[in-house]
Design a protein around this nucleic acid. Structure first.
Lengths: 148, 148
DNA sequence: TGATTCTCCACTATTTCTGTGGAGATTAAA
DNA sequence: TTTAATCTCCACAGAAATAGTGGAGAATCA
């Protein structure tokens, strides 16, 4: 279906949640789970690869939790998606030259790679900082509307 | 994994195969299957929706087969992919406003829709005619190399 | 008539997705 | 030191999608 999975969707929301609390100390998975409506257990599956890749840091024990490892302006959606969804590639191009035996295939491959490049480029151009800023703007708009 | 399925990949190859024989009468599924290395049976699953959508026409009985319903220059990869992979949308956006209850979600949706738009635009800008032309160019290049 | 070819429904095996369970390790605070 | 909080990790499982097969039947041409 060419749809991204919940891993990518939830993972981005998780990171935006963390980004909007950057500098305020560790955030509990439980809190994020509550705010985002995702089970704490499942969240761990998402935060784990992000931690291994060095995008977030964890603190164990009481008053522990997770924080971004760098400022939100230094993290883009491309790296998050790549960690959670795998290579942002519409076909298994990098790893399997075997698929490329057919000449017709090679022509179509050019197309898939072009599209893949554009997806990567688009996602890499968006940082968590921008997402947080947009989010706050929208929140303000919504609360203003409510008062009219 | 953000990968397109064999439906889309094989389907495009199927259509390029038909396009490169446009005007030469019906083409047998069996021949396409042989050339493309795809089972005849599975090909039917791909050609069926393309026929229902009016992109190809079929001829039954002896000397039957399939042909493009329009010139290759009038068919683009976007419509083929949409028929075989479903809507070219990274999230279930059009059909489910229910998913949109969360405010954070809405911010991320903007991103997914932007990327989806770019994917559509890219694929819609490429016609079968161009693919066939590229294919022939590459074939020539390969045969030239072989003679040196 | 008979061979050819498309048409269509239904079925299955495999893989991926979307989670869940539970035991254990680590740490902060009382 | 004890206790509660919290992350860590492996394994399992149900559900859905993917990829592909089988076989009977209908239409057409020679």
């Amino acid at each position: 279906m060419l749809q991204i999975s919940t891993k990518g969707r939830y993972g981005v929301r998780l990171m935006i949640d963390l980004a909007s609390r950057y500098g305020e100390g560790p955030v509990l998975l439980r809190e994020i789970a509550g705010r985002q409506g995702i089970s704490e257990k499942y969240l761990w599956n998402l935060v784990s690869p992000l931690k291994n890749a060095g995008l977030v840091v964890s603190f164990r024990g009481a008053h522990g939790g997770y924080s971004l490892a760098k400022p939100p302006s230094k993290i883009n959606l491309g790296e998050i998606m790549r960690l959670l969804e795998g290579p942002l590639c519409l076909v298994g191009c990098v790893e399997k030259p075997s698929e490329c035996g057919r000449s017709t295939m090679c022509i179509t491959r050019d197309v898939w790679e072009e599209v893949s490049r554009r997806i990567s480029k688009t996602l890499e151009s968006i940082t968590l900082a921008e997402m947080v800023r947009k989010h706050r703007t929208r929140e303000t708009e919504v609360s203003m509307e409510g008062k009219q």
